[in-house]
Design a protein around this nucleic acid. Structure first.
Ligand code: SF4
Ligand code: SF4
Lengths: 134, 134
DNA sequence: TCCTAAAAGGATAATAATAGTCCTTTTAGC
DNA sequence: GCTAAAAGGACTATTATTATCCTTTTAGGA
């Protein structure tokens, strides 16, 4: 239960690797993929998602590649994970009131909410700089 | 991400309902299923899992049904969830050292461990008695 | 002992999600 | 115009989820 998918795992690996590189260095997707041992075509999709929301900046054509969209200490693990896995939702009822008709009287509901807060809290306190370990 | 499956949700609903009943009352699966709005055939499978590990006691034949295997305040939400969803594993590397060859130098690894601890902690502190709301 | 109630177990099936691959298109540098 | 590299789209294989249905076992009661 609550397992990160490969996609999520690959996403973290890839962007953490970027964070270990000099911040002005434009990295090739193929290099990143090789370095973190992820299928390049799959990682491409992931970085496209990152790019759309500005987590990374991409340059096309010769000399192109990727750099972080912000300083490594201003990107949290939570952002990275949510970018590819979607929001942290331990149970559908936490997403919005009314999702489950039982939520008005349900005592379990607040527990899932608590789980959500705790997980988000852990992930939010970790930045790419922490993970790069420099 | 981290979403409980229907099975898990149904499992919680079903056993919480049992906890709201008088503790010596043998409840029919069909009644439980109707009360918590879950397909009876599906809930049957879930309660079979509960039964195997003693979370509920089952009686077959006429007058049969289910009762809690222990007092409601001695069954935690964690146990219930893990019974049907398996252990709380935010990422494969937390299950055992060596699962991922990178874990020796990986800074992300301990974060997932922390997530695991936090989630387990929240769920462990809640018992069926709390959830039954009596 | 036979009938009926009820859970246990097993097989199967439809749908959705995951984990990719491959090909074409766009963009940019030389 | 050639080449490098990311972006986008279509497609596929595998696995997990969400069930349903049928048969078997167990037990109670007439
Ligand atoms: S935990 Fe309660 S509110 Fe949430 S989905 Fe389950 S029954 Fe509904
Ligand atoms: S978080 Fe680190 S140790 Fe865990 S699977 Fe990913 S790379 Fe491996």
């Amino acid at each position: 239960m609550m397992e990160l998918t490969r996609k999520g795992e690959y996403a973290v690996r890839g962007i953490v690797y970027l964070a270990t590189q000099p911040e002005d260095k434009v990295c090739l997707l193929s290099d990143i993929a090789a370095a973190v041992d992820v299928p390049a075509t799959f990682l491409a999709k992931i970085f496209q998602q990152f790019s759309k929301i500005g987590l990374v900046k991409s340059y096309r054509g010769t000399g192109g590649g990727f750099v972080l969209g912000r300083a490594a200490d201003r990107i949290t693990l939570l952002e990275v994970v949510e970018a590819v896995e979607g929001p942290i939702i331990p149970n559908r009822c936490v997403v919005a009131p009314g999702e489950c008709p039982r939520d008005v009287f349900c005592n379990v509901h607040p527990v899932w909410k608590r789980v959500q807060v705790q997980v988000r809290d852990v992930l939010e306190k970790v930045t790419l700089r922490d993970l790069a370990g420099l």
